[in-house]
Every structure is written in C-alpha cells, then in structure tokens.
Amino acid sequence: MLLDNTAKGVFPIAPTPFHPDGRIDEASVDRMTDFYLECGSTGMTVLGVMGEAPKLEGGEALDLAKRFVKRASSIPVVVGVSAPGFAAMRALARASMDAGAAGVMIAPPNTLRTDDQIVTYYRQAVEAIGEDIPFVLQDFPLNFTVVMTPGVLRRIITENASCVMVKHEDWPGLEKISALRNFEKDGMRHVSILCGNGGAFLDFEVERGADGAMTGYAFPDMLVDLVKLSSSGQRDAAHDLFDAHLPLLRYEQQPVVGLAIRKYIMARRGIIASDAQRKPGAAMSATAKAEVEYLLSRVARHDARAKLAAA
C-alpha cells in the first residue's frame, strides 16, 4: 500500500502515548490507532512534530512506527523521517517501508535559506532514501523557519517524481494552495495537498483545493466529518461544524503548551490513558485545564462528542 498523489481525507498526526514515567504506552498506541480507524481516518502519520519524535531513541522510533503500521493495516501510514543527517533518515525510511509503511514525510532543516538550497536539499534527500519511496514534503515555515514559495514547491515536485504530497502548514497559506492548483492547470504534475496547523483554516483550505487534513486536533472525528461535508457540497453544514469547534481548536494551537492540551483532551476522551509527555515538556496549569473544560462544555452544545464525564 504505497502512498500516491490521489490521497485524500484525514491523516491524523498521532501523538506518542507515554506512561507517567516516560515509557511508551503500547496499549494506548493500539487504542488510539483503533479510534482513528473507527472514526473514518483515511490514513495516519506518525513520528511527526507532535509525535515527540526527537525524544525517542532510534530503536524506539522504529519499533513505534512498526506497531502503528501493523495495527493500522487497512489504511496507509506515513512515517516522519526528518533527521539532521541523511544516514539516519535513510535508515528509518528504509526500515519503515520494509515494515509496511506507505511513505515517509520529510521536513527541511532550519539551516536552509535560499531557494536553491531548499531544492537541492530535497534532491539529495531523495537520493539518500531512494526514488522508490513516496514522500510527503512538509511545508511548515512557522516551525522550521524555512520559507518555500509556490515556485520552490513546483521545482521540488517537478524534479522529484517520488514527491506525491505536500503537507501544507504555511500561515497564512490559502493563496499558496490556489497557486499550486493553478500550476497544475498549467501542466505541473498533480500532488495531494493535506493541511496542518491543527485544522485552523481547514474550512476554507478544502474549498481552495486541498484534499483534506494531516494534523492532530483532539477531535479528528470532527475533521473527518468536516472534509466529508465540504466534499459533498454541504458548505454551510461544514462551516457550522467548524465554527462550533473553533474556540477549542484555537486554544489548542497555543505554542509550547499545545501538545499538552491535545493530550489532555485525548485522555479525557479515553483515546489514550494519560496526557503524559516525555521530558522536556510543558505542563498545563489547573487554570488552563478549567478553561479547556469550559470550552468542551461550549462545544458540547453543538457536538455531543465533546460532552464528557466529569473529570
């Protein structure tokens, strides 16, 4: 099951569940994967930015990827393989693909500054992992400080046939989606576009031509419904659902503490057993938890999935 340019829907970015003592919680890995399958996810992405990949040892990362792939056998799993050097990237990419992954995701190192440096980096990354491995180009300038213009993305897509998807996380980035789709009208090879940023702009991103989401909001089932509604032409219903979740979604987008919020809600929903992060990690204050509970009660007025038992 190889990833290709027809991918669409929702590929949740899976966090890595930990026990409070820092050990990987394998039972929660399985339960979370089952939840993603049950709510209609069309794929999964693991070892991404919100998966705390840099906190994992090399062997742990591969074992975790293998577990996700085996559990989610009916949908494609993309493995984040970004690394400071190409040797580590190649090793994780090849081993993940051998274990049944559908493709890999590559983010640019924050040392890249010029257009030519960016294009060259991706050419060399493909040479390192092999042209037979489909890859997702992660465009996330707010996190990696690497700005890719639509023209740079076109160069990378054109030069590397194994680039089948752009994970679009520019902000603001609606015009970039339109530019890429217009390039396709002018002859550029089609690629899938799945969007990140917690789904903060997903309502209009899909209308601009994105194929769905690759992100980690604590209600991925809402993202699945939103994409389906929008794709079927139910614009008002899609926006009504999005608007109901927007205050909570915005709250989860806070830098530094965002992962703690996401894990807290996922634990409250019973998707994972604990909201623990592997150190170092930001913790939520009692006040922040109370604010999240209030926001959940607000969302629950419109979406019963947010109506949770008392903490």
Rank of each mutant, 00 (worst) to 15 (best):
8 K>M: 15
14 A>M: 15
15 P>W: 08
17 P>A: 13
21 D>H: 13
23 R>P: 05
25 D>T: 03
25 D>F: 03
33 T>S: 15
39 C>V: 12
40 G>V: 11
43 G>V: 01
47 L>P: 00
49 V>S: 11
52 E>K: 09
56 L>Q: 13
56 L>F: 11
56 L>Y: 10
56 L>G: 12
58 G>T: 14
64 L>S: 06
70 K>P: 13
73 S>Y: 08
76 P>G: 08
78 V>A: 08
84 P>D: 07
87 A>E: 12
91 A>I: 10
95 A>C: 07
95 A>N: 10
96 S>W: 00
96 S>Y: 03
101 A>V: 08
102 A>L: 02
108 P>F: 11
112 L>I: 11
114 T>G: 12
114 T>R: 11
125 A>P: 03
126 V>Y: 00
127 E>H: 08
127 E>R: 08
129 I>R: 01
130 G>E: 03
131 E>Q: 12
131 E>P: 05
136 V>K: 00
137 L>F: 00
138 Q>E: 12
143 N>H: 14
143 N>R: 15
145 T>E: 14
145 T>Y: 15
146 V>G: 09
146 V>E: 09
158 T>Y: 08
159 E>W: 06
160 N>C: 14
161 A>Y: 11
163 C>E: 06
167 K>C: 11
169 E>F: 10
171 W>A: 14
172 P>C: 09
180 L>P: 01
186 D>W: 09
186 D>N: 11
187 G>H: 06
187 G>Q: 06
189 R>L: 12
189 R>W: 10
191 V>E: 01
192 S>A: 15
199 G>A: 07
201 F>C: 10
201 F>K: 09
201 F>D: 09
203 D>P: 07
207 E>Q: 14
210 A>Q: 05
212 G>H: 01
213 A>C: 12
214 M>N: 02
214 M>R: 00
218 A>Y: 02
218 A>L: 06
220 P>E: 04
223 L>T: 04
224 V>L: 00
226 L>V: 04
226 L>Y: 00
227 V>A: 05
227 V>E: 05
232 S>L: 09
232 S>I: 09
235 R>N: 11
237 A>G: 09
239 H>W: 12
239 H>V: 13
239 H>N: 15
240 D>K: 13
242 F>A: 05
243 D>N: 14
244 A>Y: 04
247 P>Q: 12
248 L>H: 08
248 L>A: 08
250 R>E: 15
251 Y>N: 14
251 Y>K: 15
254 Q>T: 13
255 P>E: 06
256 V>H: 13
257 V>N: 03
262 R>V: 14
264 Y>G: 03
264 Y>P: 02
265 I>P: 05
265 I>D: 01
266 M>Y: 00
270 G>M: 02
271 I>F: 04
276 A>H: 02
277 Q>I: 03
277 Q>P: 05
279 K>I: 07
281 G>D: 00
287 T>A: 14
289 K>R: 15
294 Y>F: 14
295 L>A: 04
296 L>H: 00
297 S>R: 08
298 R>S: 03
299 V>A: 00
300 A>E: 07
305 R>F: 04
306 A>I: 02
310 A>V: 12
